[in-house]
């Protein structure tokens, strides 16, 4: 993992600030792809993410309810996903393949099936 950062903004007011801040951020880094992912009991949205090998990406995660985990064991990437602040996971996938990401912080009935798929294409 190249880096994990957090935006310390508050919900609900911060929702607009969050969007605005990142629109600006995206302009500054037009070549960097940002994929926004929400976590809520017991799913990720989107549940499937497609990336290109060698293309730097930032996964921007926020929870809609409680603390969740975001873990891709096969890539050695993980982060806590919090309800009131986004967390960024920056990395450059260097190997094509299909990887499972899962919640690794027990969150209730259905936790065991809270997972998604990350596909890295050539």
């Amino acid at each position: 993992m190249e880096g994990v950062g957090r935006d310390f903004v508050l919900v609900p007011l911060a929702v607009l600030l969050f969007v605005g801040a990142h629109a600006q951020s995206d302009r500054h880094k037009a070549d960097e792809r940002v994929v926004r992912i929400t976590a809520s009991r017991f799913e990720y949205n989107p549940p499937r993410i497609e990336l290109k090998k060698g293309e730097p990406v930032t996964l921007e995660l926020i929870s809609l309810d409680r603390v969740h985990g975001f873990n891709i064991p096969d890539l050695g990437l993980r982060a806590d996903v919090l309800p009131e602040q986004s967390v960024r996971v920056k990395f450059t996938p260097d190997k094509a393949g299909t990887y499972t990401f899962l919640c690794d912080i027990f969150c209730g009935d259905g936790h065991g099936e809270m997972s998604g798929t990350l596909v890295v294409k050539e």
Binding site: P73, D74, T100, L102, D104, G112, S115
Partner: peptide
């Protein structure tokens, strides 16, 4: 042991 970490079948 890490039986299947992608399924949560492990202890950190």
């Amino acid at each position: 042991f890490d039986l299947a970490p992608q399924w949560g079948w492990a202890t950190q």
